[in-house]
């Protein structure tokens, strides 16, 4: 985990790529209790999905961001807040890139403020960085 004085505005978190399969959505539905059929039933998704097909839970993508930020921060107790703005749908089978960048520091609170995001290979913003943030407590 980085110390407060070692962190600079502009520092990037190591980007993580991950393919999201139907099994991941089923596992997330079971763990979180979010059984909206949009995330597992193709017939239902065909009627209501913006893509016409099954898409990932927004909260699964936010959970992936949480995992990446927590790993950088050095533990879940260091994450003070996390916000996500869900923009583009994330079709099942997509490979997403999860990223973050330090955009500000609070000297008094000794926190780093990060923009965080999830993108698809075509650049579509699943979690839009401009309106998605993490605040991390550092030593």
């Amino acid at each position: 985990m980085p110390g407060f004085d070692e962190v600079a505005v502009g520092d990037a978190l190591p980007a993580v790529e991950q393919r999201i399969e139907q099994a991941d959505l089923v596992r997330y539905a079971g763990a979180s209790g979010d059984f909206n059929p949009l995330h597992w039933e193709p017939e239902f998704a065909a009627k209501v999905s913006p893509t016409g097909g099954v898409i990932a839970h927004g909260m699964l993508n936010m959970g992936l961001v949480s995992r990446v930020v927590t790993a950088w921060a050095g533990g879940p107790e260091r994450v003070r807040s996390l916000s996500a703005s869900f923009r583009a749908p994330c079709p099942v089978g997509s490979t997403v890139t999860i990223g973050g960048e330090v955009v500000d520091k609070d000297d008094r609170a000794r926190t780093a403020i990060l923009q965080v995001w999830v993108t698809l290979p075509d650049g579509a913003k699943v979690i839009n960085r401009r309106s998605s943030r993490a605040v991390v407590q550092l030593d």
């Binding site: 909206n36 059929p37 949009l38 209501v48 913006p50 839970h57 927004g58 909260m59 936010m62 994450v79 003070r80 807040s81 996390l82 916000s83 996500a84 703005s85 869900f86 749908p89 309106s131």
Partner: peptide, 12 residues
């Protein structure tokens, strides 16, 4: 059930 999630935040 015809809904999507727009945004979410957690303050811990």
């Amino acid at each position: 059930t015809n809904l999507v999630h727009g945004n979410q935040s957690y303050e811990l």
